[in-house]
Design a protein around this nucleic acid. Structure first.
Lengths: 208, 208
DNA sequence: ATTATCTATAGATCTATAGATAATGC
DNA sequence: ATTATCTATAGATCTATAGATAATGC
């Protein structure tokens, strides 16, 4: 009855991929090992054979995605550019990250950190590392302020503004698509326009 | 062994209250009828006696909260004020709403709409009604633009900016508290400061 | 011989309900 | 007599593992 489409040279990877897709779509609590197996077309026991526990499987994916995000942000270094140009590139980089990887990534990470205190604890040090690595940016902001090119503001506020405006349409993806009754392509187009709008808003928010 | 603290004149209300708190904290999937009963100090069967199904109980709470939010937004009417003053008041109103009702409300509504397509469908008409009732605001925006007092922008973009900036710190509450290692009181203070920052950013985003 | 896959099932929840008992309203 | 509360349990998942069988690597 059930047929294999692919010669399963690497079922472990297929399970990981199916799990990733389901976890991104529904989160930890609403996804079961049975569903993951069904999607792959294999037995549910195999999910545990390769990953031992559901928690373990989820954690593998979550940590990988979260580190990918944090490290991509961390790796941003354009210190020789004018401040506005730098901010503008950072915004574009963040949009690009979600578009090229997965549009559901922002909500996936947010949800797990908000709803699972244990996971939040386990990711704290990685998140604080990002905070520290952004000291350069913070110094830069202070310098711009001191020299009168940027209005007085805290680095925290700027970070909140950028991150939330940039993740807004990704986080609310299912709502936006349904409410505006648009296709995935139209949604992507909307997001790209929004990137420009965010740059506009954020640069304006910086000016003295 | 188990003692009643209160004379349960209205156990139904107590169950509702406990369910509300747990659902707000953990969402639908991570909350069980057993936990709700445990918190109230009664038998789990009573949860079903009063509300028949978990879905029904959740839906009662969700619809009430979502309508409360939508109607509060809808009821905003200050058409005789200058545009900037109007926007500023709207922002304050939204902050006030979450602070006085429940800081977890924003994430509660967002999460359910994002993760449960059935619920999203069921709330669509109510949400579209808000969209329609805001036509007045939209006209006002177009008028301001036409008369050169506001830069060219879509109503959709303005709405996204306001809603996301305003819900940002509420939505990320557990992360913020943990990351900054602050108390609930310090968190509330932070939020109030953020309200001012949002007004600043949004008003700046409007200027020609 | 080892590793991958399957079948079968134990054990843990969890939702929902049936049926017994206690409390309350006439 | 009706309504509220409890005990007990059926039935549906779901996770995890034990043990059988098939596939693969020497």
């Amino acid at each position: 009855m059930k047929e294999k489409i692919q010669p399963n040279q690497n079922l472990e990877q297929e399970i990981l991929a199916a799990a990733e897709d389901l976890f991104l779509e529904r989160g930890y609590a609403r996804t079961s090992a049975v569903e993951i197996a069904k999607r792959v077309g294999c037995n549910q026991a195999l999910v545990h054979y390769y990953f031992r526990t559901k928690e373990n499987l989820f954690n593998t994916i979550f940590v990988q995605k979260n580190l990918l995000f944090l490290q991509t942000m961390e790796s941003f270094e354009e210190q020789d550019l004018p401040f506005e140009e730098m901010i503008s590139r950072f915004i574009k980089m963040q949009f690009n990250f979600f578009i090229t990887h997965d549009k559901r990534l922002a909500y996936f990470i947010l949800d797990e950190l908000v709803r699972n205190p244990v996971r939040l604890d386990s990711q704290l040090s990685a998140m604080k590392r990002l905070f520290k690595s952004s000291k350069g940016l913070e110094m830069r902001l202070q310098k711009e302020i001191a020299e009168g090119r940027v209005r007085k503001m805290t680095f925290f506020d700027l970070a909140v503004t950028i991150i939330t405006l940039n993740s807004a349409l990704f986080v609310s993806r299912p709502i936006i698509i349904k409410l505006l009754d648009i296709s995935e392509e139209e949604y992507t187009a909307l997001i790209k326009l929004r990137c420009q709008e965010n740059i506009e808003i954020i640069l304006r928010s910086l000016r003295p």
